[in-house]
Amino acid sequence: MQMQSSWYERIAAPRSSTCLACSRTIPYYGDLEELKAEQWRRSLCPSCVERIPFIEEVGCSSCGRHIRCEDCQRQPLQQYGLAYNRSVVQYQEHMKEWLALCKFKGNQSIAFVMAGMMIEQYMPLSLTAKVNKPTRSSSDWWSMLKEWWNPESIIEYPDLVTYVPSSLERLEERGFNQAELLAGTLAKAWGRPLLNCLDRTRDTGKQSQQSRAGREQSLEGTFTWNQAAFQGIRFYMARQLKPYLHILLVDDVYTTGSTIRACARALQDGLRELHIQGMVSSYTWARA
């Protein structure tokens, strides 16, 4: 808790807050805006934290599912220009409620908790991706030692953070884009730029109400590059020493992956147009 300014505020500070998910009484944690992202657990009650189904072991190295998945064998993500996907939690009933609370009821503080979880789990999850392991030269004993001592230190944060855009109508209806909220918090925590790379040219209806084939079909050509983002990327690359770019695509949930695939393809197309070598990986909060 932050020190309050005057004696009155100090004695009048509330002693308890409510859990964001189940509104049970928990110890006071202060203002949500002042809470650091790593402290997301403080805004939930212990039983809610306990029930979060984290993906502790990645079953599919490409899409980050907790069990092996046939989708990725049938249609590898690499076809679409997506290096890998990682997700924090399994998309179970409990988590569905959370997302509904955020998306449909408009409780934006849940998005903060979700982003906190994503920040916390980014390192261990991205360690499981092969792309992130450096090609080891035997002479470089120092990096070997570093990796052995602290494996997370060799992972670099992405250069750019972007998100899956939502259509204008949806944005107007909800007032916010939950993927943007997540991406914004991640970018802020890592000190990386948040760039709105993509535009959604048409509304495809709610994804959650469509079948798999329908999703794939309806998404074709939906995402295009934002012209302003080209400028941003050029500007960014001009100041950058390394010649390649790692873009992280953030979304709330990965169900069949069709949205993310479409986005990744659009991103890669744009990068090709710019003649920039880039890697696109995606990071979602939940994986069905």
Partner: peptide, 14 residues
């Protein structure tokens, strides 16, 4: 009451 930037009204304190 929760304050946030809102896309529907364009206000930074909605």
């Amino acid at each position: 009451l929760q304050v946030s930037a809102c896309e529907s009204c364009g206000s930074s304190r909605c």
